[in-house]
Design a binder for these strands. Structure first.
Length: 875
RNA sequence: GGGCGAUUAGCUCAGUUGGCUAGAGCAUCUGGUUUACACCCAGGGGGUCGUAGGUUCGAAUCCUACAUCGCCCACCA
């Protein structure tokens, strides 16, 4: 009665539907003590980025969970936000300024930060819009930014507490230094890249040794050998003068297990200030440090003629000079893992510097009657299952990483970020750490104080994300109601960067877990399995472009179906197009339903007592109950792909292919047609929110689908017998169609059929209409039994015999061959089954229902064999 | 060096505590103006489940080894 467009056009509806949801306030959950809360903190996209496939996946999965729980009656909070992403953002703005010929140092800290602020404001606005594009039902009224005032308070509070607990300390330690960013990097912010380099064998006093970095010779203070190395045994503990390009210098020989006697000559030069291993060796043996490389990656003033050169320039020069002095023995090619900055790929320069650290091994958290470290605590909550990781194999990865965690360097020498809340008194050197800006020195009252210039690692603040966004350190209602959060969903690539740090920071600050479950999705790859990279647009799919082309719903499905947690997934345009087709398919099923129902019936509530008319109705309703049960279970177990596939198959292969087709004849029952459609829309809504909502409106629903309830399994709508009968009908129709195709019967031609139906006679009589229509029969005769019919194709479905007297089309020889082939098949199968059932161990050990099933199948197979044999003997 | 994952139809992937003659989508082939949908319908072909052993009544699924690809961690000057 009502007609909707012939095809669904997402572009026409998506924006207005989103606005309708947002304006209605459904995204903002109430704090209702009678309801359970369900919270997801959205992993905040970096403030600099535009939406990429990683975000799109994350948003699709999280929105699915949130909508599902919301429909189930939970107070579902999905809290959105953005991360200031200190280094990444600063680099980006520096680059932008550089294009205009502006250098940040000339601009000065204050002005530079203003520039960053402007850029970030604009950029955040873009990402906000893009998050909306994905249909994300997040609570914008609670949106947060890691540099917000509230979050900054949280950062200072945690810093101060940790400082007072002696967890945060300042020390001279060797750190990863990026000379381009001019900042420290945490251990996991360093990447390794394989590179072809040279290995220089140099004459080194009484030694010959191999090095890739001859320029660090200027900072050498020792030579180390393996304690068991016979070659150098007598030299250990002695001091030697080594000839160098800047004259002789003294080294001491130490024995250390770290040295691999197999590599090179078995002796290494020790440069404690510029190598992690050497620093550790130096610490163990009390060897002095000598820094020769500065924070710009250039040789320091103590390097004579090399001062001011970059390490690379210096290497060239020093090799030249050493060669002149006859110090170079040989130069070999060498493949080497070069450490580079994860943000800008510049080679990392290890150097010694005064930095702030978090001590991860210091026992400070009360645990029963003893104290454990923040690291042990973070291990414990996962080990004991307080936090569950999906898929669980990542437990191992997590534990391994956490066990090997060293003190975390948290200070960064960049400007953008949370400035470290430490002030120094210039008059009395007092160090003041507190949450508010102090006016004067607490010790000498001098006003001559200055804040530490460094900022905090960006992961320090994002480590507080689940609770700082809910108002902590204030004891807010939000915090009480929504924390701990339910699920943290993110890519496995930031398990260490972020997940691990949230667990550390939250268990320390709140003595509470940040989330109950960690759900890790895989990375999106190209069709050939390569990483998509922005620098190569030919491999890269832009989610926004796909949304324009196929709609958000189709894009979302392409992330949700066909993927499993923790595994990478390949994405390509045909896949998205396929789900667009699915969306359109349901749209058209709805179109059909609407065309077949009176408007007044649309407003009626489905009542099984009055509205169920036929076996077909009972069949589809039963299948729907199974679907509801399965899908609910799958979503609860985070098997989103399975859930989606099941809805897909039900809708297309059962509802559309059979039930809608049946509706075109005597079985038309608009009530059930629409009821099942509506249930499917409910089930589908968390996956594909836009078009389900559009259809919902068209079905005269007053309430929005987003606010509707999730369907529940209803046992009273399960009809096992009717399902069996209907499936028999499907089988008969399919088999007749197959035979038609097999014999090349023109689709338009209607044929004659005779069925000996036994106990199903009455049932088939009732289904005469769909049977003749869907199998394209012109004359159907149904008997309970009868004589075999000659010159006819025969089919055996269970105990039924079907004859298609195709007369001139029947080629006896061909028919014989077909039957023989089928017989062969059945005989083979019979063999397998009977030997299985004769096996006593199988009958004894296998579960009863498995045995029963096999028995039933054996019976059917044997009856089929008998029938075909009879038929063949007549041919 | 240590760990993890993958290996199933031409392609992309499902396959839950072992239990239908191993499934889907795409592609392909044969047909098609059916009461919604060609973004569709009906039907077909296509797989020794990476290899070799083992456990079991029964293995794609569990165990062992190997192979290939990929990822993570550690790291050598």
């Amino acid at each position: 009665m009502k007609e909707i467009a012939k095809a669904y056009t997402p572009q026409k509806y998506e924006n207005s539907i989103y606005k309708k949801w947002e304006d209605s306030g459904v995204f903002t959950p109430e704090i209702d003590p009678n309801k359970k809360s369900f919270t997801i903190s959205m992993p905040p996209p970096n403030a600099t980025v535009t939406l990429h496939l990683g975000h799109a996946t994350m948003l699709a999965i999280e929105d699915l969970m949130i909508r599902y729980k919301r429909m189930q009656g939970f107070s579902a909070l999905w809290l959105p936000g953005t991360d200031h992403a200190a280094i990444a953002t600063q680099n980006r703005v520096e680059k932008n300024l550089a294009e205009k010929g502006i250098d940040r140092h000339k601009l000065g800290r204050k002005k530079f930060l203003e520039e960053v602020g402007k850029f970030v404001e604009k950029s955040r606005d873009t990402i906000r819009k893009q998050i909306r594009k994905m249909g994300s039902s997040c609570d914008w009224s609670r949106e947060r930014f890691t540099l917000d005032e509230g979050l900054t308070k949280a950062v200072r509070e945690v810093f101060t507490r940790m400082y007072n607990d002696d967890l945060i300390y300042k020390g001279d330690r060797i750190v990863n230094w990026c000379p381009r960013c001019e900042s420290t990097l945490a251990d996991d912010e360093v990447e390794y890249k394989e590179k072809q380099e040279k290995l220089y064998w140099i004459k080194y006093g009484p030694f010959t040794l191999a090095t890739t970095r001859p320029e660090t010779k200027l900072g050498d203070t020792a030579v180390a050998v393996h304690p068991d190395d016979e070659r150098y045994k007598d030299m250990v503990g002695k001091k030697y003068m080594i000839p160098g390009v800047l004259g002789e210098f003294e080294v001491i020989v130490v024995a250390d297990k770290e040295v691999d006697p197999q590599f090179g000559s078995g002796a290494i030069k020790v440069t404690p200030a510029h190598s992690f291993t050497d620093f550790e060796i130096a610490e163990r043996h009390n060897i002095p440090l000598k820094s020769v490389i500065n924070e710009q990656g250039k040789m320091m003033d103590n390097c004579g003629k090399y001062a001011g050169m970059t390490t690379e320039e210096c290497r060239k020069e020093i090799v030249k000079d050493m060669d002149k002095m006859g110090l170079i023995e040989k130069i070999e090619d060498f493949t080497h893992n070069l450490s580079v900055c994860y943000r800008c790929k510049t080679a990392v320069e290890p150097l010694v510097s005064k930095q702030w650290f978090i001590a991860v091994d210091k026992p400070v958290i009360q645990d029963g009657d003893k104290k454990i470290s923040i690291k042990e605590k973070a291990l414990k909550v996962v080990r004991e299952g307080d936090i569950k990781i999906v898929p669980d194999r990542f437990n191992k990865t997590y534990s391994h990483w956490m066990e090997n965690l060293h003190d975390w360097c948290i200070s960064r020498q960049i400007w953008y970020g949370h400035q470290i809340p430490v002030w120094y008194c210039r008059d009395c050197n007092e160090e003041i750490v507190q949450t508010d800006d102090p006016e004067s020195c607490r010790k000498c009252k001098s006003k001559n104080i200055k804040q530490d210039l460094d900022t905090l690692d960006t992961w320090f603040s994002s480590g507080l994300w689940t609770f700082s966004t809910l108002g902590w350190p204030k004891k807010t209602e939000d915090l009480k109601y929504f924390h701990p959060t339910a699920v943290m969903e993110t890519g496995y690539d930031i398990l260490f960067f972020w997940i691990a740090r949230m667990i550390i920071m939250t268990t320390y600050a709140l003595n509470e877990i940040p989330f109950e479950t960690v759900y890790l999705h895989g990375l999106i790859r190209t069709r050939s399995g390569k990483k998509m990279s922005k620098s190569d647009p030919s491999t890269c799919i832009d989610p926004l472009e796909m949304i324009d082309k196929y709609g958000t719903d189709a894009l979302r499905l392409s992330f949700l179906i066909g993927s499993t947690p923790g595994n990478d997934m390949r994405l390509y345009e045909e896949k998205i197009a396929g789900y667009r087709n699915f969306v359109n398919k349901i749209w058209n099923a709805a179109r059909f339903s609407l065309m077949n129902i009176k408007e007044e019936n649309l407003d009626e509530v489905f009542d099984p007592k009055r509205h169920i008319n036929s076996r077909a109705d009972k069949w589809i309703l039963t299948k729907l109950q199974y679907l509801v049960k399965d899908v609910t279970k799958d979503i609860e177990k985070f098997r989103f792909s399975d859930a989606g596939t099941k809805i897909y198959n039900f809708t297309w292969s059962e509802y559309c292919d059979w039930y809608v087709e049946l509706s075109k004849g005597q079985h038309l029952n608009p009530h059930v047609l629409v009821h099942v459609l509506k249930s499917v829309l409910r089930l589908l809504h968390p996956f594909v929110p836009f078009f389900t909502e559009v259809l919902w409106e068209n079905l005269h629903e007053k309430k929005m689908l987003i606010e509707e309830t999730w369907p529940e399994y209803d046992k009273s709508l399960v009809f096992v017998k009717e399902v069996e009968e209907m499936e028999l009908l499907h089988q008969i129709i399919s088999d007749i169609r197959k035979m038609r195709a097999n014999y090349g019967v023109e689709p338009a031609k209607k044929i004659h059929a005779v069925i000996y139906a036994g106990k199903y006679k009455d049932f088939l009589e009732e289904k005469r209409e769909p049977l003749t229509r869907m199998a394209r029969l012109e004359n159907l005769e149904i008997f309970d039994k009868g004589e075999k019919i000659e010159k006819a194709v025969c089919l055996f479905v269970g105990d039924l015999e079907i004859y298609l007297p195709l007369h001139e089309l029947v080629d006896i020889e061909k028919e014989q061959k077909r039957l023989e082939k089928e017989l062969e098949n059945l005989v083979q199968f019979e063999k397998t089954l009977s030997s299985k059932l004769q096996n006593k161990k199988f009958v004894q050990n296998a579960p009863e229902d498995v045995v029963e099933k096999e028995k039933k199948r054996l019976k059917e197979t044997r009856s089929g064999i008998k029938k075909i044999e009879e038929k063949l003997s007549e041919l």
